[in-house]
C-alpha cells in the first residue's frame, strides 16, 4: 500500500532534485545547503555572496508562498531549547567538518556515485539512528 505521504515525499524529492539540477547545469555549482550557508557564515564564500544569498532567499521564501495552500503545517520540533541548541551546534560543526549535509553529500553525492557522498550518508544516518535509539528508547529523553 502506498501512503499519501510517500507520494508527497516523492514529488517533493523530484523538486529538490530539479533544484539541484538547475544549480549544477546552469550555475555550475553543487547544491549543498550547509556549504551555501556556511560559506557566508565563515566568510569563505564571499566571492559568490549574491549567488548564495539568492539561493537562500528562494529556500526561505518559497514555503511562505506555499504555507497558505496546505493544512496543518508544523515542524513539530521539540520545545526543549537546550536540545535544539546542542543539536544545532552539532549540525553546524559536523556539516562544515564533513563538507556537506543531506543535500550536498546525500542528494548530490549519491547521484554522482561519489564514494565520499555515499560514505558520509551512511555515517550520518547510522549516527542519527543510534541517537534516536539511545535518546528515545534507551534513556527516554526525547
Amino acid at each position: 500500500m502506498i501512503e499519501q505521504d510517500w507520494i508527497y515525499g516523492f514529488v517533493g524529492g523530484l523538486l529538490i532534485g530539479l533544484g539541484g539540477a538547475v544549480y549544477l547545469l546552469v550555475n555550475g555549482r553543487i547544491m549543498g545547503a550547509s556549504g551555501i550557508l556556511g560559506g557566508l557564515i565563515d566568510g569563505s564564500g564571499m566571492r559568490t555572496f549574491w549567488e548564495r544569498v539568492s539561493f537562500i532567499a528562494g529556500v526561505v521564501l518559497m514555503p511562505v508562498l506555499l504555507y497558505p495552500m496546505f493544512e496543518n503545517v508544523d515542524t513539530h520540533a521539540t520545545s526543549n531549547l537546550l536540545v535544539l541548541v546542542i543539536a544545532g551546534l552539532f549540525v553546524g560543526v559536523g556539516t562544515r567538518l564533513a563538507n556537506g549535509c543531506t543535500s550536498g553529500h546525500g542528494v548530490c553525492g549519491i547521484s554522482r556515485l561519489s564514494l565520499r557522498g555515499i560514505s558520509a550518508t551512511v555515517f550520518y544516518i547510522m549516527a542519527g539512528g543510534l541517537t534516536i535509539a539511545l535518546l528515545r528508547h534507551a534513556w527516554g529523553l526525547i
Binding site: T78, G94, C101
Partner: peptide, 26 residues
C-alpha cells in the same frame, strides 16, 4: 574530517530532526 563531521551531524540531526536545508525552509 568526513567521518567525525558526518557522525556529529548525524547526532544533531537525530536529536532535533532538522538539517540545514529544512531548518532554513521552515
Amino acid at each position: 574530517n568526513l567521518i567525525v563531521g558526518s557522525v556529529m551531524f548525524g547526532i544533531g540531526w537525530g536529536m532535533a530532526g532538522l538539517c540545514p536545508g529544512p531548518s532554513m525552509a521552515s
